[in-house]
Write a protein that binds this DNA or RNA. Structure first.
Lengths: 131, 131
DNA sequence: ATATCTTATGTTACAATGTAACACTTTTAG
DNA sequence: CTAAAAGTGTTACATTGTAACATAAGATAT
């Protein structure tokens, strides 16, 4: 699975990197239009889809937002699992990873005859500040 | 956390039960209109929100759909974790639960000072048929 | 190097999903 | 019984995402 870089993809990655937090597709579009004034939604969504497939970014489904995978690992490193903590109050998201969950998760999938692609797990609740 | 039943809520629960699969909000609305012809989106979304809070149904964020919690347990039973297997190909969803993940998940949350509400975990991949 | 094929992007138009705000009704608690 | 709270009706709209077709850029073979 080769990752092919293009001008547009780099621009969007740069926007996500600069943001230091998850962005919504239309927030990315807004930024992108500063350098590409006639950008439209499909421009953004197509790149997002590609970057998700390549495990470069995560979709945060519960928040309709997108963020760089903050960890050095990607899913080639199948011995770790990514967790996204999503605060229902302030909507902060932060990512961590753990190596001890991989085995049991693998077992659960096997038991259920399921073949996981992406084991980024979204946990909903409250962060320390909002608790 | 008391669950209060009403006519409307029961109607929507019945629709979800009959469906035997996750439904989208507008699919629920469509069904509901057969008995409540002037139902509107907020009617559905408000009930869904309530039922999610009460852990009676799950939102399947990656699919924009909603399903009855198929398991006898709810989150009062904090010793088990729900998993939703979502097939990226046929979009089938099925639920299972596991008791061995609860402890390590708890640890991860504690280590990150995070207070989980809902630990229903969506796993994306392919089901046996589509693999 | 050029014709061809594939991948990426531009563009238009729209579909699908979800919510704010206010009115009205029903239920609950004192 | 009355006031407050919870639930529902209704309108209007905001947000999120995509289909479909056109054009451009990059890769491949001869």
């Amino acid at each position: 699975m080769v990752f092919k870089t293009t001008k547009l993809r780099n621009e969007i990655l740069k926007i996500l990197r600069r943001a230091r937090k998850p962005l919504k597709a239309y927030e990315i579009l807004e930024q992108l239009r500063k350098i590409r004034p006639n950008a439209e939604p499909p421009t953004v969504y197509r790149v997002l889809k590609y970057l998700i497939e390549k495990d470069v970014i995560h979709e945060i489904a519960h928040e309709h937002s997108y963020t760089l995978c903050q960890l050095g690992l990607n899913n080639a490193d199948s011995h770790s699992t990514s967790f996204l903590f999503i605060c229902n109050a302030c909507h902060d998201v932060f990512e961590t990873s753990d190596t001890q969950l991989a085995k049991p998760l693998e077992r659960i999938c096997e038991q259920n005859n399921f073949f996981v692609n992406c084991s980024t797990i979204e946990l909903l609740g409250h962060c320390e500040k909002c608790h």
